[in-house]
């Protein structure tokens, strides 16, 4: 049996070197709430585990250009305990806090949720709606991409060999902006989203939607940024007709599957229902700012 190695580098460069240099399967460990489950089920058997929690800034939330940079190992609980960030991006925070139990929140990270590339990841539609960027370090240096470019299919990311996401950047918000996230699950807690919807929008003084981003989870192989849904509400005051158009655009964008968590038909219908509800919450938040 090959030995499974465990390393705790203290710099980004050292981590990249380890990840790039491993001939077998190398996995990054931050919260471990996905990785340990996969290892137990033997769906993932790494040759090398690179624990990034000893690297400076991985556990940090820092203000940057009026927004926030969230280190890759910041747990959901730590994120929720940051009052300023929670005030600026309540939808992102509430989406992250929906991942698993209180116990899971003690470990699970937004970056891990993104890089696990599950179509049902709760934080991802909220991050996409927020226009978040992922900072990537790798053998060829650093780069930054919109978060929606990270997952490419269930369980697969666009990260190249040796690359890992070091932080997520949540940009500064204009005035009268709000975001929200809702998911549908059959229980009140502990389920994977059957459908998830994140919306971020900015209103003008009259309450008309100036800008919007709408994202859906669990209705396609990856979370979707639905431009048609955003266009359906931009320029409106979220009147019933606008909400109907939003719901229709969301349902139309779905490419779901039937599985143990829900049917195709159900997911398509619920995507529209959630979008309406999320848009109204986001607007209420925007009006308060």
């Amino acid at each position: 049996m090959d030995e499974m190695r465990y390393e705790t580098p203290t710099s980004v460069n050292a981590a990249v070197k380890l990840l790039a240099g491993e001939k077998g399967l190398a996995k990054v460990l931050a919260g471990g709430t996905d990785l340990l489950v996969q290892m137990r089920g033997e769906t993932v058997v790494p040759n090398l585990i690179v624990d990034i929690k000893k690297i400076a800034d991985m556990k940090a939330i820092k203000k940057e250009k009026g927004g926030f940079r969230v280190g890759a190992a910041v747990s959901g609980a730590e994120l929720g305990e940051h009052p300023e960030l929670s005030k600026m991006w309540p939808g992102v925070v509430e989406a992250t806090e929906l991942i698993g139990s209180t116990q899971v929140q003690g470990r699970a990270t937004m970056t891990g949720n993104l890089c696990n590339a599950s179509p049902g990841a709760d934080s991802v539609p909220a991050l996409i709606a927020a226009g978040a960027l992922a900072a990537i370090a790798g053998p060829n240096g650093k780069r930054e991409v919109p978060v929606e470019q990270i997952p490419v299919s269930p369980g697969k990311t666009s990260l190249a060999k040796g690359e890992f996401v070091t932080s997520l950047f949540l940009p500064k918000r204009p005035k009268k902006s709000g975001d929200a996230y809702l998911r549908f699950i059959p229980r009140t807690e502990m389920d994977i989203a059957v459908v998830g919807c994140g919306i971020s929008l900015t209103l003008d003084k009259a309450g008309t939607v100036l800008a919007a981003r709408v994202a859906l989870g669990a209705v396609a192989p990856t979370a979707l940024l639905v431009d048609a849904a955003a266009n359906a509400i931009i320029g409106t005051k979220l009147e019933d007709a606008a909400l109907d158009a939003l719901a229709a655009a969301c349902s139309a964008a779905c490419r779901p599957i039937d599985d143990k968590r829900g049917t195709k038909e159900f997911r398509i219908q619920i995507a529209g229902v959630l979008a309406r509800r999320v848009a109204l919450i986001a607007r209420a938040r925007a009006l308060k700012k």
């Binding site: 465990y6 116990q103 003690g106």
Partner: peptide
């Protein structure tokens, strides 16, 4: 698999499932 909480412990004061933490950590 982190779904039942029976293995709850505090790790540096933070509530976690000990089944989702590696011993080496």
């Amino acid at each position: 698999t982190g779904d039942c909480g029976a293995c709850s412990v505090l790790l540096d004061g933070r509530l976690v499932c000990s089944c989702l933490v590696l011993g080496v950590e």
